[in-house]
Computed example of a mutant assay.
Amino acid sequence: MTRRSALMIDPVSADETRADYSDTFTLVDAAAPALSVGELSTQRGDGVFESIGVVDGHPQEVVPHLERLAHSARLCDLPAPNQAQWHQAVEAAAAQCGAGEAVIKLILSRGVEHGPTPTAWATTAPAADFRSAREGGVRVVTLDRGYDLGAAERAPWLLLGAKTLSYAVNMAAIREAHRRGADDAIFLSSDGFVLEAPTASLILRFGDRFVTPEPNGGILHGTTQLSVYEHLAAQGFEVGYDRIPASDLPRADAAWLVSSVRLAAPITAVDDAALPVDAELTADLNRYLLSPRD
């Protein structure tokens, strides 16, 4: 059984010349005080993070997560995370996980205000029980994100393509979905295109073709979505990226929200309009996503 734990990471140079970074990690009590009151991750949400699913002690899709962490850091003008060091940190954190499903969260913040170095840590915790969402599906509503599809390119300081700690808007969207009697939300651009969910990627099926919104316009390139695409392509399905008008959502033959910890949750309704559910394919996707993947 996984217990909550925390691993403080002393960031080192991006020059990956060392073979062993274990002396840069400190295992601490997850319930004990560890951050300064001047820490900018808590004061301003000034940092980036990744959540890595762990199955029976095996961290899933580590390299894609670390690559996305580096991408987010670059967008936020944070020092480049040393990939070898962070990979070893993930392995050390996974060693704290037992049987079953868990989650490792990686955090890189700007550190203490006016401080010399960033702050970095990893936490482990048991994963929530998502069997209901995986088997019974989720109802979603569409919400206007307030930006058109070109906003991320036109205004990169909005950090729309970074996975930052500033998740207040994402959580507000989920609360609004609950107020509307749904489980989750799908963001739409202000010019009427499908984006993503607050904490998941969207995959739609039209016949034997699977499509997800293009990873631009402030959309995170989902690590789980990439894994699902590899699995589907291996079975001979066509997979692709496109600009998807909101009007295409109710026409889909099936749809899923996919993420690293919840995995594949079939969408049963969009704005109260029922969608078909492919229970057999959903079960196949989740079996695959629960299998060890590097």
Score class of each variant (00 low, 15 high):
residue 291 S to K: 13
residue 235 Q to N: 10
residue 267 I to H: 01
residue 274 A to F: 12
residue 222 G to Y: 00
residue 243 R to V: 07
residue 288 Y to R: 14
residue 292 P to M: 04
residue 291 S to T: 14
residue 257 L to C: 08
residue 293 R to G: 00
residue 241 Y to C: 04
residue 247 S to P: 12
residue 284 D to G: 01
residue 271 D to H: 13
residue 277 V to P: 05
residue 238 E to A: 09
residue 265 A to T: 06
residue 242 D to M: 06
residue 229 Y to S: 05
residue 256 W to G: 02
residue 226 L to A: 13
residue 264 A to V: 06
residue 222 G to V: 00
residue 277 V to H: 02
residue 251 R to F: 07
residue 256 W to A: 07
residue 260 S to G: 14
residue 280 E to I: 14
residue 256 W to T: 03
residue 267 I to L: 04
residue 226 L to C: 03
residue 223 T to R: 00
residue 234 A to C: 06
residue 236 G to K: 02
residue 240 G to N: 04
residue 233 A to Q: 10
residue 267 I to W: 02
residue 278 D to N: 05
residue 253 D to N: 11
residue 271 D to R: 07
residue 267 I to S: 05
residue 284 D to V: 06
residue 230 E to F: 06
residue 286 N to H: 08
residue 287 R to W: 13
residue 294 D to E: 13
residue 285 L to T: 01
residue 221 H to Q: 14
residue 273 A to M: 10
residue 253 D to I: 02
residue 245 P to I: 03
residue 266 P to M: 11
residue 257 L to G: 14
residue 239 V to M: 06
residue 260 S to T: 14
residue 232 L to K: 14
residue 288 Y to F: 12
residue 294 D to S: 13
residue 279 A to G: 09
residue 239 V to C: 10
residue 247 S to F: 07
residue 246 A to S: 00
residue 245 P to E: 10
residue 255 A to Q: 04
residue 275 L to P: 13
residue 225 Q to D: 04
residue 260 S to A: 11
residue 227 S to M: 15
residue 229 Y to L: 03
residue 243 R to Y: 13
residue 271 D to P: 12
residue 257 L to S: 04
residue 223 T to C: 15
residue 221 H to P: 15
residue 262 R to D: 03
residue 261 V to A: 13
residue 273 A to P: 15
residue 284 D to L: 11
residue 224 T to E: 03
residue 251 R to L: 04
residue 259 S to C: 14
residue 279 A to H: 13
residue 231 H to M: 11
residue 274 A to Y: 02
residue 263 L to C: 08
residue 282 T to C: 07
residue 257 L to W: 12
residue 266 P to T: 01
residue 276 P to F: 08
residue 251 R to V: 00
residue 268 T to K: 06
residue 231 H to N: 06
residue 280 E to Y: 02
residue 275 L to Q: 04
residue 286 N to L: 08
residue 282 T to H: 11
residue 232 L to F: 08
residue 222 G to H: 00
residue 235 Q to L: 15
residue 224 T to Y: 01
residue 242 D to V: 03
residue 231 H to C: 11
residue 291 S to L: 15
residue 273 A to W: 11
residue 261 V to L: 02
residue 270 V to P: 12
residue 255 A to D: 02
residue 234 A to M: 10
residue 232 L to M: 01
residue 292 P to H: 09
residue 272 D to T: 15
residue 257 L to A: 09
residue 237 F to R: 00
residue 251 R to T: 04
residue 284 D to T: 10
residue 260 S to N: 14
residue 231 H to I: 04
residue 248 D to H: 02
residue 282 T to W: 09
residue 254 A to M: 04
residue 281 L to C: 01
residue 242 D to N: 00
residue 279 A to K: 12
residue 222 G to Q: 00
residue 260 S to Y: 12
residue 230 E to L: 11
residue 236 G to L: 09
residue 238 E to W: 09
residue 269 A to G: 11
residue 294 D to C: 08
residue 240 G to C: 05
residue 243 R to W: 11
residue 285 L to R: 02
residue 288 Y to K: 08
residue 226 L to M: 09
residue 287 R to Q: 07
residue 269 A to K: 10
residue 230 E to W: 06
residue 238 E to L: 06
residue 230 E to V: 05
residue 244 I to Y: 15
residue 240 G to Y: 07
residue 223 T to D: 10
residue 234 A to H: 12
residue 290 L to W: 10
residue 290 L to P: 08
residue 283 A to H: 15
residue 231 H to G: 03
residue 226 L to P: 01
residue 278 D to T: 12
residue 275 L to K: 03
residue 267 I to R: 00
residue 285 L to V: 01
residue 237 F to L: 05
residue 236 G to R: 10
residue 267 I to N: 02
residue 270 V to E: 05
